[in-house]
């Protein structure tokens, strides 16, 4: 098993290096000149001072050295946690800008993924042994998974925000308020959070439920279930085994799903104009802020890699079949 994890770690390490390198290269290959953009934004008309500014910015962003040296500087800075300075939110450091947006994204994705996983699995397991629920609730699940997410999100925003007017349709909190640890602000935060959360929750729910239902039915019809029943095992025991075995692939699925957590809510954040990493990514692209872009992509890459590795670990540890297979058991 140790060998397996060492090999996996090596692969993930290599992937990280390659991803970081691509991350370094791509913005630099993109059309547009961020420094020139800064200059226009600051509307520096005077040619002389413009040149001075350009020199200043080039030095600040580290663009005044050859590309290979930029590359090594980039790695060096990375290990110091220095992701550079944002052009879009100048002069805030990229790390701060990302850190400010991250909580919004996490607050949307973590609860929606975890909750839809729990509720979906519970519903699916119930549907597997309840005809009524199976015929009633499952078609809804199919519809929910078939509907394009964008469409569902817009519908929710329209119904909940405009028709019913129960929820705000944009922002992370009311502009009238300033962020503070007060009751009013927290309620306002939750109020803004609810619709985007709901859209993510609902869209993932059906998939988990359908998956779990099929897995449980498969387990209930498997040979070991039949044998247990032939030996007079009460349904309680048969179902418990079936559920436990069915949930194993779902756990791996959850870990994989969490991998998208950092970069996953782009569409949600756009539709609900919610301030998170997704919105930030969009802003970074439109203002050609490649330091910020790099910073965000780096977070996404790290998130995907960490959770994929976690999924690998979970997949192996949770199921004795794979665990023992790696330990070199017989058969």
């Amino acid at each position: 098993m140790g060998r397996y994890f060492r090999r996996k770690l090596l692969i993930y390490g290599l992937t990280f290096v390659i991803a970081v390198s691509i991350n370094f290269a791509v913005p630099r290959l993109m059309p547009g000149d961020p420094v020139a953009r800064m200059l226009t934004r600051n509307s520096v008309a005077n040619v002389e001072s413009s040149e001075a500014m350009r020199g200043y910015f080039n030095e600040l962003f580290g663009l005044d050295v050859p590309l290979w040296q930029q590359y090594f500087n980039y790695w060096g800075a990375l290990f110091r946690g220095d992701l550079g300075v944002s052009v879009f939110a100048f002069p805030s450091p990229v790390a701060t800008v990302v850190a400010d947006a991250l909580p919004y994204t996490l607050a949307l994705l973590l609860p929606s993924i975890l909750l839809s996983w729990f509720v979906g699995n519970a519903l699916g397991a119930m549907a597997a042994r309840n005809k009524l629920l199976d015929n009633g609730a499952l078609p809804i699940g199919y519809v929910l998974t078939a509907v394009p997410y964008m469409w569902l999100a817009i519908l929710l925003a329209w119904v909940g925000g405009i028709i019913l007017g129960w929820f705000p349709v944009a922002g992370g909190y009311s502009f009238a308020l300033t962020p503070a640890f007060t009751w009013t602000f927290i309620v306002d935060l939750v109020h803004h959070w609810f619709l985007p959360f709901l859209s993510l929750f609902v869209v993932a729910l059906g998939g988990w439920a359908i998956g779990m239902r099929n897995l449980v039915i498969y387990e209930l019809e498997s040979d070991y279930s039949n044998y247990l029943q032939a030996l007079g095992a009460p349904n309680r025991l048969v179902r418990r085994y079936a559920f436990r075995n069915a949930v194993l692939p779902q756990i791996t699925g959850l870990a994989l799903q969490l991998g998208v957590v950092v970069g996953g809510a782009l569409v949600t954040e756009v539709v609900f104009a919610y301030p998170g990493l997704g919105s930030l990514l969009l802003n970074a692209i439109s203002s050609q802020d490649f330091f910020l872009l790099q910073g965000i992509l780096l977070f996404i890459v790290i998130g995907v890699l960490v959770f994929n590795f976690l999924a690998d670990v979970v997949y192996v540890l949770v199921d004795p079949r794979t665990r023992l297979g790696l330990e070199g058991g017989q058969s």
Binding site: D223, Y224, N226, Y227, G232, Y241, R321
Partner: peptide, 25 residues
């Protein structure tokens, strides 16, 4: 009603003995 009789009075070695045991227990 059959449950009470199973295993104690009637029992079976099924055709699929190789896969008759819960793989995760």
């Amino acid at each position: 009603a059959m449950n009470a009789r199973r295993w104690k009075e009637v029992s079976i070695i099924p055709q699929y003995s190789m896969s008759a045991l819960n793989p995760t227990r």
